[in-house]
Design a protein around this nucleic acid. Structure first.
Length: 222
DNA sequence: GACCAGGCACATC
DNA sequence: GATGTGCATGGT
């Protein structure tokens, strides 16, 4: 869709997610819940420095040790529990083998992820798209804010509504979903933060008239 | 010193 | 089912 083309032309390919391994993507997805990525990066760095960025090592750490390592990411007690929940599930159901866990079909994998306490829709979908390479669109605060600021969704639209809209508009293409979501984050950082429509916004052409055309418009041709 | 940042589970009505 | 609250650090 042209909305994506504008962003892509402005920001270039974003090459997401910022992580070296699939496991790091999963850990980052939990740590970034309601938290600035800068703080998450610090926490991940601390895990790396402690040689603790792998399932079995984290599984063996005490709650206190893990919480202390991820302290910079905030909510460290909550998140230590959530990381433990995720890894306990991985160890119990797949002997700690993340590749095996992620290689199952998307539907059952999503259901399994959502059954883990501390993994909600956004966290599950981030893991599905960016760690497992499944074609599912990640809806986060940036996605909603940018779409809302440009008149494409209602401000109170819930997760499923926004995701359904994107799925209906776009071909189920992992590369597209990957980079498109990253573009939302880029424009969210860049200029969609406080001002509804800033002068520099690469999407400034997409205002109400486009919004009206969106629901049933043929916007998914590349 | 407020206010915000790539959520989620749980309590309450 | 909708709405409110706790969780916490670090940057602006």
């Amino acid at each position: 869709m042209s909305f994506y083309r504008e962003l892509r032309a402005h920001f270039g390919h974003r090459k997401w997610w910022p992580a070296d391994t699939r496991f790091e993507v999963c850990i980052g997805a939990i740590l970034t819940q309601n938290t600035a990525w800068k703080n998450v990066a610090k926490a991940i760095e601390r895990l790396k420095d402690a040689s603790a960025l792998d399932p079995l090592t984290i599984h063996r750490l005490s709650h206190e040790e893990l919480a202390d390592l991820i302290r910079p990411a905030g909510y460290f007690n909550v998140k230590a529990g959530r990381l433990k929940n995720f890894i306990s599930h991985l160890v119990r159901s797949h002997e700690g083998n993340l590749e095996a866990f992620l290689s199952q079909p998307m539907e059952s994998l999503r259901e399994e992820l959502l059954s883990i306490k501390g993994v909600g829709k956004e966290t599950a979908d981030s893991m599905l798209l960016y760690a497992a390479g499944k074609p599912i669109f990640v809806v986060d605060a940036y996605t909603k804010r940018v779409l809302h600021r440009h008149g494409l969704i209602d401000g109170r639209a819930d997760y499923d509504t926004v995701q359904d809209l994107l799925h209906a508009e776009l071909d189920p293409d992992v590369e597209l979903y990957n980079d498109f979501h990253a573009q939302f984050v880029a424009v969210g950082h860049h200029c969609c933060k406080k001002k509804p429509r800033c002068e520099l916004c690469p999407l400034r052409g997409f205002l109400p008239e486009f919004a009206q055309a969106m629901p049933d418009g043929p916007t998914n041709q590349t």
